[in-house]
């Protein structure tokens, strides 16, 4: 299943956040959306998944999802959005229960995804008992449980410390190797974008516009922080965004 955004424009209370953004997320690929703070990345993601209505433009899908897919467009949130009074099991079950699966089916799915994120023995744990990395893995397990066609990931690593981030990045890559999911990966972190993105959509600062679409052909498994091709791409993108990042930074201070 492909996901397409056509000429998305959106404003909050007269302030234009997104202007004429078009994207095409191809099946089996990860689209990284990179931009400075306040460029409307998260808004774009909410619009892509139907959590928000754009002022103009539209979002479409083409093709049909697999039979196993329960929730084609599935989010992974920056703050994990785990329900604190439900166990890891309960959190995943919440996403499954209204799909009319048999109990055995449901439990099999839950066990499967928990195994994939290495949380099998934590099924009964409450979110407060988990570390930050484990919480995000639980949230990812929940997202995987509904066999999404496209994952919509909103800075999933930015609430974590550097080491956990590195580990989880490895996990995400491994997961993609296993199942080859499609995803939109919103981040403000250049390194994450070049590590995971098959394409990188670089947004300008407010109002967010698509500055450039960078394709990286190198397979995910082969990507290393120090590979020269990636460094070249990083450099290129960095030059694109650094002035804007600096301006956005000043703007934030002035507004604050």
């Amino acid at each position: 299943m492909d996901l397409m955004a056509q000429s998305i424009t959106h404003a909050y209370g007269g302030m234009v956040i997104l202007q004429d953004v078009s994207l095409h997320v191809e099946s089996g690929q990860i689209m990284a959306v990179l931009g400075p703070s306040g460029c409307g990345k998260s808004t774009l993601l909410r619009i892509l998944g139907g959590l928000e209505k754009p002022d103009s433009g539209g979002v479409f899908t083409t093709g049909v999802a697999e039979a196993a897919t329960l929730n084609p467009l599935t989010y992974v949130f920056q703050d994990f959005a785990l329900v604190p009074w439900l166990s890891v099991y309960g959190n995943i079950e919440l996403a499954l229960r209204h799909h009319g699966l048999s109990r055995a089916d449901r439990d099999a799915r839950i066990e499967g995804v928990l195994t994939r994120v290495n949380l099998r023995e934590f099924a009964k744990a409450l979110p407060k008992q988990l570390s930050g990395g484990m919480r995000q893995r639980a949230a990812i397990a929940r997202a995987l449980a509904v066999s999404p066609a496209i994952l919509l990931m909103d800075e999933p690593l930015s609430a974590l410390d550097a080491q956990t981030r590195a580990l989880l990045m490895e996990d995400l890559k491994a997961l993609w190797q296993q199942s080859g999911f499609s995803a939109v990966y919103v981040t403000h972190n250049l390194s994450e974008a070049v590590q995971l993105g098959h394409k990188i959509a670089v947004l300008s600062r407010r109002p967010g516009r698509l500055r450039e679409l960078v394709s990286i052909d190198m397979p995910l498994a082969a990507r290393r922080d120090d590979s020269p091709e990636l460094l070249a791409i990083r450099d290129h993108i960095w030059h694109l965004i650094r002035d804007e990042a600096a301006m956005a930074d000043r703007e934030m201070v002035q507004n604050g």
């Binding site: 329960l70 599935t74 989010y75 329900v83 919509l152």
Partner: peptide, 10 residues
């Protein structure tokens, strides 16, 4: 955020 999460899972 929890409500939006639940909505996002339908």
């Amino acid at each position: 955020g929890l409500i939006r999460m639940a909505q996002s899972f339908g």
